[in-house]
Amino acid sequence: MTTRVTLQDVAARAGVSRSAASLALRGDGRLAAETRERVLQAMDELGYVYNRTAAAMRTKQSRLVGIIVTNIDNSFFAQSVMAMEMELERLGYSSISASSLRSRDRQDQLLRQLREFGVDGVIVAAVEDTIESVAQEMEAAGLPCLSYTRFVESRAVDYVGPNDFEGGRVAAAHLLWHGSRTFAFVGSRSPSSASRLRRKGLMAGLEAAGLNDALRTLRQDMTPLGGYEAAKILIASGPLPDAIVCGSDNVAFGLFDAFREAGVAEIPRVIGFDDVELAAFSSPRLTTVSSHPAMLGRLAAATFVDRLSGKRTATEVQYIDSDLVIRASCGCRTLDVPPEKTTNNP
């Protein structure tokens, strides 16, 4: 019968104390990197498997974080959740990620399952208008919650997300600089704080320029198909606006396909939102308001770990500035961009 390898065995192989080996497993920053590497190497050599269940019973902490987003297949969430998972791992935490598919029932089911797994808390991009109830449920269970990209008016929970209002204003300023005077905004068909704030910022920028009635709003799914359908509507109703702001880059990709298919000779200026990886390779290359998905994911993870460790006590709202990444779809060429715009900020 094979004898089970213990943490004491690992410590002996690595030439450290059992407490040091334990710190290495938890990713504790107090331990020297070289010592941690020796412990990890000893674990590999001995085939040691960390018993998280037993550790959780001793410490009352699982060092496991739940992550729920609406759809991890979405390019923005795919990038940000990956960064979130990597940052949590760096900080000594594991994670479980899941998609609610914008279903309240599924979200409730996922929250129950995460609690059954004994997570220390949840980072959630909640189904719209549910974050308050999610926060209350987690509070009743004694678990912290961070709202990711879903702004909470009551400030009842920590929030990490892009400055969507400023992003809309930035898009308006750049398109106005190009001389655009008629606009369309393709926003989310379902209620969305991000879509609402992006449109609000866009509208504020237009109104500041005296264009109070220059914006047409279409509601579609935030997918390439949604963008394709929006373009068909705009083409059929003509004339096309001077500029279109899309609630996500995915919408812009579908928009381009529809315009090409219809043989539109001169498509409107287009700006997307998020700056997903494909934006740099679309045709035309997509000018977009960057939401910095990877940076947001890392910030959310670090903020949440600070909450779990007790370093944060007061509820905090954290924005990441929305920068304009200038490519071709807005009508810019490199020589078109004035000196004050070379920083990607209009």
Rank of each mutant, 00 (worst) to 15 (best):
S75F: 10
R198F: 05
G310L: 06
R63P: 00
Q61P: 02
H178V: 03
N250W: 03
E89T: 14
L278H: 07
L278G: 01
V5P: 04
L25F: 09
S283T: 12
E340C: 02
A42V: 01
C330G: 10
S17E: 07
T217S: 07
L299A: 12
I96H: 03
D274S: 15
K200H: 12
F259N: 00
L296H: 08
L296W: 07
S283I: 06
A252R: 03
G121E: 09
S309C: 10
T303L: 12
D306W: 03
G238Y: 01
Y48S: 04
D323M: 07
V251A: 05
G179I: 10
G263K: 04
C246S: 09
F259C: 10
E87G: 05
C332F: 12
T2S: 15
V39G: 01
S192P: 13
D242V: 13
L25H: 08
P338Y: 09
T149V: 10
T3S: 08
A171C: 09
S147P: 10
M43S: 14
A214H: 01
V134C: 10
S193P: 04
R155G: 15
T2R: 15
A78D: 01
L324I: 11
R312L: 15
A140F: 02
Q8D: 14
M222R: 10
V276S: 07
P284C: 09
K341H: 14
A265F: 00
S237F: 07
A230N: 02
M222N: 10
T287D: 05
L299V: 11
A262F: 06
D336W: 06
E85C: 08
A208F: 04
A294I: 00
N74L: 04
E34C: 00
G121D: 04
S19C: 05
L91D: 04
L46P: 13
A262P: 09
A208I: 03
V124H: 04
D274Y: 12
T35N: 06
V69F: 12
A125S: 15
L234I: 07
Q318A: 11
Y148N: 08
E153I: 05
V152T: 12
V152Q: 07
L278V: 12
L308R: 13
R90A: 14
A171L: 03
F256I: 02
V325P: 03
L234P: 03
R181G: 11
